[in-house]
């Protein structure tokens, strides 16, 4: 038996929005530790790693580890039927072929349930090595989304350069060039507005805009985003999910031909 209840059901809706354009289908791995997902996009350029710890759920029971393969377009249709203020409960039997979603309104006067057929996915998991990154930048997630959107107008890829002074996003295209520089903030009233840079070595790497823009669909999950960069390895773009989880996007860099 698997059962997970999240009072703040809107978090699950936001997680769905954060992955549904990048992935067509994905396996949700459930264990007593919580819910995890790892999947590559169709082109195998990026990888999504989602972790929601059991401690973040109001109720969490997982008697046996199980993997639930879901079509994300179908899952999205179901989660769109939940209101932002609804509590969401997922339920499945051991070795399930369906999963049930129950949505309860705040006053408990409206209860709806939907069941969805699961699919068999033969997804391979990749081992992600522990990496000490040369630069780790934390910045407001809305600012990152805006920069990616703005610069995408001018070219297909963005170069991210990081020094101890700050982070620079650059684009070059047919009509010209664009640069956005963010300095490390000295004093800010709100932690959510801070830009912080932890640098061991300066880094400059180039990434496809298309994927960066997909990742920014996670912006509603967290006011801050963390970018981790090292030469010749994938960029990590991380958004926290409340206090109990995260979604990490890994993006393979463009390499010189």
């Amino acid at each position: 038996m698997f059962e997970a209840r999240l009072t703040q059901g809107s978090l699950l809706k936001k997680v769905m929005e954060a992955i549904r354009e990048l992935l067509n289908e994905a396996s949700f791995d459930c264990s007593e530790n919580g819910i995890q997902l790892q999947a590559m996009d169709n082109s195998h350029v990026s990888l999504v790693s989602l972790n929601m710890g059991s401690e973040g759920f109001d109720k969490f029971r997982c008697d046996r580890n199980l993997t639930m393969g879901m079509n994300l377009a179908s899952l999205s249709k179901i989660l769109k039927c939940a209101s932002n203020s609804d509590a969401i409960t997922l339920k499945a039997q051991d070795d399930p072929d369906t999963v049930t979603f129950t949505f309860e309104s705040e006053n408990n006067e409206r209860v709806s349930d939907y069941s969805m057929k699961l699919i068999n996915l033969d997804q391979e998991h990749l081992g992600i090595p522990d990496t000490e990154y040369s630069c780790v930048v934390k910045m407001p997630s809305a600012d990152f989304a805006r920069i990616c959107k703005d610069l995408s107008q001018f070219g297909d890829c963005i170069t991210i350069s990081c020094t101890k002074e700050g982070i620079k996003f650059s684009v070059a295209g047919d009509i010209g060039t664009g640069n956005v520089k963010l300095a490390q903030t000295a004093n800010v009233d709100k932690e959510s507005e801070a830009v912080t840079v932890e640098m061991q070595e300066p880094v400059s790497l180039t990434f496809a805009c298309r994927y960066l823009n997909h990742f920014t669909k996670a912006t509603p999950l967290s006011e801050q985003v963390q970018l981790s960069l090292s030469a010749d390895v994938p960029l990590v773009v991380e958004y926290k999910i409340g206090e109990f989880g995260h979604i990490r996007y890994y993006l393979a860099p463009k390499i010189d031909e």
């Binding site: 998991h125 090595p129 393979a252 860099p253 031909e257």
Partner: peptide, 14 residues
């Protein structure tokens, strides 16, 4: 603007 590499070049199968 460089060649897009695959994520599978960096992470091995678990």
């Amino acid at each position: 603007s460089g060649k897009q590499s695959s994520i599978m070049n960096f992470f091995s199968k678990a």
